[in-house]
Design a protein around this nucleic acid. Structure first.
Lengths: 207, 207
DNA sequence: TGATTTTCCCTTTTTGTTCGCCCACAATAG
DNA sequence: CTATTGTGGGCGAACAAAAAGGGAAAATCA
């Protein structure tokens, strides 16, 4: 069952309040928030929203409104339309945010090279000096060849897969350089190294 | 049953409105949107669309139009390329890739908290010890309050915006801690600090 | 006891429905 | 070739019902 304009406003207010405060508003607070003079009106709205199963509440229990999954499904979906996010400016240490002129946006599509992109989760700190940390997820592009200095996923001697910087050395040797001063580079004949992917992006999530 | 040109216009307008606002338009609003002077005309269109089962509505109920799956099937774009990438495994220093069991995927939607997310580009190395580098782009969520240890964008004394770790100190003071041993923390009264956003994610792109 | 929710009954506003009538165009029958 | 008929699209006004809002008081929980 569809919502009317006002009903959606009420629902959104409750959702917003819940999000802000972690507990649900009293009818009094809803009335203030929506400029209503009578609790009867609030009560009526809540009742309708309950019959339409956008929320539920305990009878006569104060602050007992809970949103039903229906609301989240219909209205909280993280904008599937375009994976774009406004890019508001640049932030520097101790300097104000430089505003960015036009409405610039950050688009996730820019982080994906072509269709042949895959992801890995990083374990360990072998690339920590390049600021790639344990738990980070990396996007890689399947390539056969790498250029000097690229960060690649390489299969060494058919058994061992590592994330390293790639350099060609003299005499057909290849050096796979970790970015961690406590680890030693691997130097092997080029024919023993198979490049599986080249680093495109690093994604790190905070909780 | 096929639609006429005008009928499709009406249907598209309703779909667009629904998408924008989360609730359906009144006949009045449809009339304005399509430059019609009479609600009777709108009513007639809706009735036709209902018999052709592109939508349904409740009798005498305001804002009760719902689109039927038929419309979505016929006219809705075929999924805007889900921003998903296969997550193939975990890679560790010098160890083979641990295969991941099922077809797990990395979804960009996971990096966006809610609708209220914005991005900034990082300048400088004030957070380098937290592995946030010059040129990285960060996703932030608008929040009013921060918890101890959160990385936040804070406006200090109304003039200076910085990316720092946030800690509450004694006597109502707040410490904004850079992650760079060469920089000193900022300690100011809590009332001089306005939190503008909390760090959700770091994105780094390689060329 | 105080904060909250529920209920009764009423008014106002918003919205949907209906009826008669109009025009333009295309297909069809005379 | 013309007259007739059907259909999509449109208009305005009168009317009816749902939605929304209100005041006050009773009921309930903590």
């Amino acid at each position: 069952m569809a919502l009317t304009k006002r009903q959606k406003q009420v629902l959104d207010f409750i959702a917003g309040f819940l999000n802000e405060n972690g507990y649900c508003p009293s009818y009094e607070e809803i009335a203030r928030g929506l400029d209503l003079a009578s609790l009867a009106t609030v009560h009526k709205h809540i009742s309708v929203l309950e019959t339409k199963s956008y929320l539920k509440r305990g009878f006569n229990q104060s602050r007992s409104i809970e949103l039903m999954p229906k609301y989240l499904q219909e209205y909280q979906r993280p904008r599937p339309a375009a994976m774009e996010i406004p890019l508001l400016g640049r932030i520097a240490a101790g300097a104000p945010v430089e505003a960015i002129e036009q409405r610039e946006t950050l688009n996730f599509a820019d982080y994906v090279g072509n269709a042949d992109t895959f992801a890995l989760e990083v374990r360990g700190n072998s690339m920590i000096d390049d600021h790639i940390c344990d738990g980070d997820r990396i996007l890689l592009e399947h390539v056969a060849e790498a250029r000097d200095g690229d960060i690649v996923v390489a299969l060494v001697a058919g058994s061992e897969t590592t994330l390293k910087r790639f350099y060609r050395e003299a005499d057909g040797m290849v050096r796979l350089q970790p970015a961690n001063s406590t680890l030693k580079p691997i130097v092997v004949p080029a024919r023993d190294v198979q490049i599986q992917g080249r680093l495109l992006a690093v994604l790190r999530k905070y909780k």
